[in-house]
Write a protein that binds this DNA or RNA. Structure first.
Lengths: 139, 139
DNA sequence: CATGGGGGTTCCAGTGGGGGGAAGGTCAAG
DNA sequence: CTTGACCTTCCCCCCACTGGAACCCCCATG
């Protein structure tokens, strides 16, 4: 299987697959003409990678996951630990974004949004903004 | 005012301020010895930039905001438009993160997390995951 | 007056995760 | 035989910085 078909089936751009080979995530064979020759196992790996990346795992996280994926003697607890750690990171990002959202919403709400130059948003950005409560209810 | 004091007062690392000068966001004067000499107006700009960046605006967004900030004839509506657009982007990121969170939580919940190698998380990553409903309730 | 330390300056390289595009090899169809 | 779709490597670009090397400047101290 050439890179084009592999890319289509894995749901990744060819460039990304070449990059993954470069950093050692996949090791496809080569045909006599120099073309990469992907086996089904490579495709499985790449599909796995695409899913893990879509869930926001970093490349290093994917590498760890992949190592466990290929280790028949792994303990599911190890995987769960990585996943839970990643869940915490996602939660932290959501909290941060919600905080930004709250602050900016607050500023926008005060702004008349008309033709006049007086703008509470710019005022809020240029002077010290009082911390808006960051919706810590549901992370 | 030298870069060190400016950095401390603006809440930005000196390196970041040099970078902002390089990309034309601030244009400090120079002393005879070659040191950057920041005026109060520069400090205001940098403080403004630090706040806008903390709210997640890109450098280009900051540039637009800054242009409006310095335009005495601006309409507050223009600022509000930019801010609202940014709010939408924040909301989209939150939705995406929540979707990831839901999917991963679902996988984690099914995982025993013990010493056995059978792991629903890895299984979920390697086969097609059914779309978990992405908590579209509160964006 | 030398020296030390804590500023400052420049430039180069690297991060993560690829994307764009050039220059050239290969293959199947018409 | 040519065309066009693939494939290859190579290098630079993105964002928004950050780290480090090598060097300059200023002030206080012995």
């Amino acid at each position: 299987m050439n890179i084009g078909e592999t890319a289509a089936r894995a749901g990744l751009p060819p460039k990304t697959i070449r990059y993954y080979e470069e950093i050692g995530l996949v090791k496809p064979m080569r045909d006599n003409n120099g073309y990469r020759a992907f086996r089904e196992a490579d495709l499985h790996k790449l599909t796995f990678l695409a899913r893990a990346r879509a869930l926001g795992f970093t490349i290093d996280g994917c590498r760890a996951l992949l190592a466990l994926y290929e280790d028949d003697a792994r303990a599911s607890a190890d995987v769960k630990t990585i996943a839970n750690k990643h869940l915490e990171e996602i939660e932290k990002k959501i909290v941060d974004l919600k905080s930004m959202h709250a602050t900016l919403t607050h500023l926008v709400k005060e702004c008349a949004g008309d033709h006049r130059p007086d703008c509470p948003i710019l005022n809020g950005l240029s002077s010290v903004a009082e911390p808006v409560d960051t919706a810590k209810s549901e992370p």
